[in-house]
Nucleic acid binder design. Structure first.
Lengths: 368, 368
DNA sequence: CCAATTGCCGAAACCGGTTTCGGAACCGAG
DNA sequence: CTCGGTTCCGAAACCGGTTTCGGCAATTGG
């Protein structure tokens, strides 16, 4: 007897779940046949395979992932360990990132296991724990570091993973990344076309792999614009607003200050706004800025921050899809993708009202 | 033969996990005895129970949760469905919230399954799915609504849950909540002591249960301060910065504008800053403001926003502990806790430099 | 036409646990 | 000394799947 499924769609028939035993009985087949039919074994005829699939469909059979896991060792769950000690831009994107992962995962009937850790060591330990307890079949690694302990662990234990971000040592690594270097290059070129000649660069954290790339992009932009690199215009380690303010002050204290600044991180770029407010400079006229990330706060600044937006949600989605493919056996070399950041020109970059010399004079007046 | 665990602590011995069969063999007991010993069955002598526990400890035995789940139906996982259609203050707290849940869960050997949904209907559907697939044994419900469809579903299916926030119909509900009403009351009293007589209130979204409570707290504050309520000073539906700006403008357009505003939501309160910047008003002097949430952005405002801070991480931690207790059988009535918000006085509330009349005149000058 | 494959499926073992059931050993009481 | 009741443990069934193995029927090759 097949229990009819009433109430909400595929919700719950009273004493609900249909098991493989029930399904096989209803079909007049053995459960081994049903199992192999559903899992694509070659020794099942096409006709019965179809019959089984249809029967499973109509009876609403869905195998319990933990019941299969006991034999297969796989639970159909993606793992994500969020490291929360770094006060960088991860937070505002977290919800979108999760959303992207979640839709891709649930589209395939997978789920997402999340844990947090407050240090790199603990992150690795947590991941090891999750793997050992079979709580996740693979991991999405956000914020790839240049030398990443997580990669070492997962490689050693042969656990599938995909990185959000590229790495210097790509062996066995799958990744999805945004082309931050192209964004930085385009930012410099854009500012150059607006008439800027002294364009500074404020990078993010050096331990992150992206900072290496973005610096290269900045340099490529200078080259494309025919500008020569001035080391004093390159700063780094600016992740938070305070950091960005600090670096901005340092840049404006130069004998020949920049008239435009390219930031690798939006939150740091917002520090420039504060310094400008203090010094009576108008962003986008006295000092131009272009940044990267596309955080919502940037849109609320005055003038709104021109920034290269990253579609974090889409990234999460793609990463989840790629990780599932990876777990199912696709080789890491086939799973490497990049996407461009999209420039949102909002008014924080304009033609220089003052050149570097005039700006320096104005700043000198201000500070005395 | 017991395999020795080398490398990193409880990591992985090659061909690792010790099973209950191995453990029972090593102890010279049957696996049923071992199982019952570890699960606290009464028909196991205290001495063997101890022996088993010690053996499990030294051999590093940890039962696979999905192997137990196949019989018990429980996977030792907490569920959290994050709804991302509402653009309210949920985001900045998400990481902290997850961190709190994560530590409490992993302390008990539980994990966290996260999903997202972009509408209430989909949230409910997602939760039903997770329950049916046994991906979570219970749920943490963030952002309790006055009339919450999630509660209805879970109650109907007899699935354990705890709410972050109270509810009007408490039957069968467990919760943890911050006393936002006390915060609002204290805010009004504080402003009154500073010399304010016209104190406005800008509430959050009416569908959330907390808004009812915070309004009541505002009123209690007026009563405690000996002020009479003026309906024109009460606004609502302000969650985002734009909303807060809109409501601030409406308040300042009154014939007798408030000299201080209490906000139920920090991000909305930041809208007041923007309006003041536009109008040339100095926050904390020409117009005072106290808010609620304690978002990081508030500390970066000028002057920093005085706000009642919510320890979201602690809340997540406690909620996870309570949910585990709930799943283990504690009655919901025993699982109801509240905690106060902590006032961070940062300078956005001061003695009024102008009274309501003078402020109105100044605003009139400004707008002409 | 017979032997050897091949295609297709069922029976049964298995995965790592939990839970039911029955029985041996021990106990105090009659 | 026997008997009924505890105390405590092992054997075996079970949970819902997967996978191995073997066998029957149909097909192919010689």
């Amino acid at each position: 007897m097949i229990q009819t499924v009433h109430d909400l769609g595929p919700a719950e028939a009273p004493q609900g779940r249909v098991t493989i035993t029930q399904l096989s009985a209803a079909l007049g087949l053995s459960k081994s046949t049903v199992s192999r039919a559903l899992n694509g074994y070659p020794d099942i005829s096409e006709s019965t395979r179809l019959r089984v699939r249809r029967g499973a469909e109509t009876m609403g059979y869905r195998p319990l992932s933990h019941a299969q896991a006991i034999r297969t060792g796989r639970v159909r769950a993606l793992g994500l360990v969020v490291q929360i000690d770094d006060h960088d831009s991860q937070r505002p994107f977290l919800a979108d990132f999760l959303a992207g992962i979640s839709v891709a995962a649930s589209a395939e009937g997978w789920t997402l296991t999340v844990a947090t850790a407050d240090s790199e060591a603990r992150t690795v330990r947590t991941m090891a724990q999750l793997v050992e307890d079979r709580k996740a079949d693979g991991f999405i690694l956000p914020r790839t570091l240049s030398d990443d302990a997580r990669v070492a662990l997962l490689r050693a234990h042969d656990v599938p993973f995909v990185m959000f971000g590229r790495t210097a040592k790509p062996e066995g690594c799958a990744w999805f990344d945004i082309l931050g270097e192209d964004a930085m290059r385009d930012a410099v070129v854009h500012l150059s076309r607006l008439g800027h000649h002294r364009i500074a660069f404020v990078n993010g954290g050096g331990r992150y792999n992206y900072s290496r790339l973005r610096l290269a992009g900045y340099r490529a932009g200078l080259a494309a614009a025919g500008l020569i690199e001035d080391p004093v215009l390159i700063r780094s380690e600016a992740l938070r607003t305070e950091d960005g303010a600090r670096e901005t002050r340092a840049l404006l204290a130069l004998d020949a200050p920049p008239t435009a600044v390219v930031f690798a991180v939006d939150h740091a770029a917002l520090g420039l706004y504060r310094v400008c407010a203090d010094l009576g400079l108008r962003v986008g006229r006295d000092l131009s800025v272009i940044s990267y990330d596309g955080v919502p706060d940037g849109a609320y600044a005055d003038p709104p921050l021109s920034s290269f937006k990253v579609d974090t949600r889409a990234a999460g989605q793609r990463l989840a899809e790629m990780l599932i493919a990876r777990i199912r056996g696709t080789s890491p070399e086939e799973l490497r993708e990049t996407a461009p950041a999209v420039f949102a020109d909002r008014g924080s970059a304009g033609p220089p009202r003052l050149d570097s010399g005039a700006l320096a004079q104005r700043l000198a007046r201000e500070t005395t």
